[in-house]
């Protein structure tokens, strides 16, 4: 029973990992940019949720809407300032540009918030499903994660700008030739990817303490998840998140918790070697 409980707990967190990874994989899928500012952006999501909660008393789940809007604007700014000019340059350029953004956010964040841990003091008690007892915040986080992923899906498949994003991801030149302003579409995609990272950060902040550096490990997890699900494939990223979350739930029940990253990244390398297109297959 302990096993099942840990597994479910892990999967619930996995939904949140999934949202962060969907953001990362969206940016990669649309513009082939490996976004190294993803982690600090998640940390900013944590802090903006915290500030809204601690200063204005906003319910953290309600705050997510504001956090998403903040993330969207932040992403548009990062794209316009740091990414757009190197978008057609070799990958190393955009990699370094986003890494620079990463350093800037961490630097400012350290100056403003210091590196001491913050905590959102918000509990909803726990919910018991038969013998399984789950913290309600995790359950709600999973629900919110599903909600945001569903919204993204609806946006990408049923709205004009969403379809334009898929068109640009599929063939940027053809999209331009059809009158789609690709620069704006790329900026929007980067904004949405960043918004998802902020939302994932906000959700994580409801159950773990955090600092401005806390995004780093989640960024790395997002990379593992993206590769598991096939880089550029949002649905794969969500499922990859569940897989990784499940593993994180199960591993500590049979061995010391310090083995978690060893096995995670072992899996990462294994997938890269054996099936580089991802466990779920993906468009190349």
């Amino acid at each position: 029973m302990q096993l099942l409980s840990s597994l479910i707990d892990g999967i619930l967190i996995g939904f949140v990992y999934g949202v962060a990874a969907v953001g990362l994989t969206l940016i990669w899928g649309v513009m082939s940019v490996i976004n190294l500012s993803h982690g600090p952006v998640m940390a900013l999501g944590m802090f903006s949720t915290y500030l809204l909660f601690a200063n204005l008393g906003v319910n953290p789940y309600l705050a997510l809407i504001g956090v998403a809007v903040f993330g969207l604007v932040l992403g548009l700014v990062i794209y316009t300032v740091a990414v757009h000019r190197v978008i057609s340059a070799p990958h190393l350029s955009s990699l370094l540009a986003t890494f620079a953004v990463n350093m800037i956010i961490i630097g400012i964040g350290t100056a403003v918030f210091s590196t001491s841990p913050h905590n959102i003091d918000f509990s909803l008690g726990s919910i018991s499903l038969g013998p399984i007892i789950l913290p309600a915040t995790r359950l709600l986080a999973a629900v919110a994660a599903i909600l945001f992923t569903a919204l993204l899906y609806i946006f990408l498949y049923f709205t004009r700008p969403g379809k334009a994003i898929r068109a640009v991801a599929n063939n940027r030149t053809a999209a331009e030739l059809m009158g789609i302003p690709s620069a704006q579409v790329l900026a929007l995609s980067f904004g949405i990817g960043t918004a998802l990272a902020c939302v994932a950060g906000g959700l994580i902040a409801t159950f773990f303490p955090f600092t401005i550096l806390s995004g780093g490990p989640y960024e790395l997890k997002s990379f593992v998840i993206c590769v598991l699900g096939g880089l550029g494939n949002p649905l794969g990223a969500l499922l990859g998140g569940l897989l990784l979350g499940g593993l994180e739930g199960l591993i500590p029940t049979v061995m010391p918790v310090s083995w978690v990253p060893v096995l995670e990244f072992g899996l990462f390398i294994l997938v890269l070697l054996v099936k580089p297109s991802g466990l779920l297959g993906a468009k190349s």
Binding site: R166, N171, T173, A174, L177
Partner: peptide
């Protein structure tokens, strides 16, 4: 409007 060589469709759509 150009119909480009090699079609350049949105193959995933």
């Amino acid at each position: 409007v150009l119909v480009p060589e090699g079609r350049q469709l949105f193959t995933e759509m």
